[in-house]
């Protein structure tokens, strides 16, 4: 079955501030889609709504036609921050927890990724650098067999070697029939692997285009095109 994410007229407010306003988005297939936008554009909120942890929004969200949060949670693997685990937990204990609670967790795939990313599973969460933590999060997220993967800023504040490792693991371990949404504001990191881009600006979807169309129509790289959107906004 082709993976689909359909969002219709989604509006979300928190603490009397509008985060997302009238967002509609329809993405499907086995693509990698970049959700781009500056800090505070609503990328994380969008992912949290899709994955079923954010509440109190207006509009419709469906994954493969399923709208209930429990169904969506079973169809989505979301890169959570590991903040819910005590800092003294070891990587292996966090993986064991995931294996116990997610019926779709693939232990073999996880072990392969751990080897590929050169992670020491006996390390405690408190001892992990930002880059190592991101690698653990990516391994845990991709180890589930789901229709949709949501990677929320997987390259934030980490060194170039770790970034390359994470991008390579995404290419290598993304299931062929799954849809992947990656959010970031450093476009250059992920531009080469994107099939489509969605730019969030002014609380809504400003652009949704195929990456190749962007390059052809604008004659610019994805990164330059994305930056030009903000420059235009600043000039207005």
């Amino acid at each position: 079955m082709k993976a689909t994410v359909k969002i219709n007229q989604l509006t979300y407010k928190k603490n009397l501030k509008t985060i997302l306003a009238d967002v509609s988005l329809d993405v499907s297939g086995d693509k990698i889609i970049g959700i781009l936008g500056e800090n505070g554009a609503g990328k994380t909120t969008l992912f949290r709504i899709i994955s079923g942890v954010a509440k109190n929004y207006r509009g419709d969200v469906a994954i493969n036609g399923k709208t209930s949060p429990a169904d969506r949670k079973s169809l989505v693997s979301y890169s959570q921050s590991l903040g819910g685990f005590p800092e003294n937990k070891r990587i292996s204990q966090v993986a064991n927890f995931h294996e116990q609670i997610y019926p779709d967790f693939d232990r073999d795939k996880y072990n392969q990724m751990i080897d590929f990313l050169s992670l020491d599973v006996t390390q405690r969460l408190a001892a992990l650098s930002k880059g190592t933590k991101e690698k653990v999060i990516v391994a845990l997220t991709l180890a589930r067999k789901t229709s949709v993967y949501l990677l929320d800023e997987p390259f934030g504040g980490i060194d170039s070697m770790s970034r390359k490792k994470i991008i390579n693991s995404i290419i290598q371990w993304k299931p062929t029939d799954s849809l992947m949404l990656i959010s970031d504001h450093y476009v250059s990191e992920i531009a080469s692997i994107l099939d489509e881009i969605v730019v969030l600006k002014d609380h809504t979807v400003a652009i949704h285009k195929r990456a190749d169309d962007v390059r052809q129509e604008s004659g610019k790289s994805i990164e330059d095109y994305y930056e030009s959107l903000y420059e235009e906004g600043a000039q207005k």
Partner: peptide, 16 residues
């Protein structure tokens, strides 16, 4: 109380 407000638990594919 920890379970209600943490992604590690609220993302579990099960009804509330």
């Amino acid at each position: 109380e920890h379970i209600y407000v943490n992604d590690a638990f609220r993302l579990i594919p099960i009804s509330d």
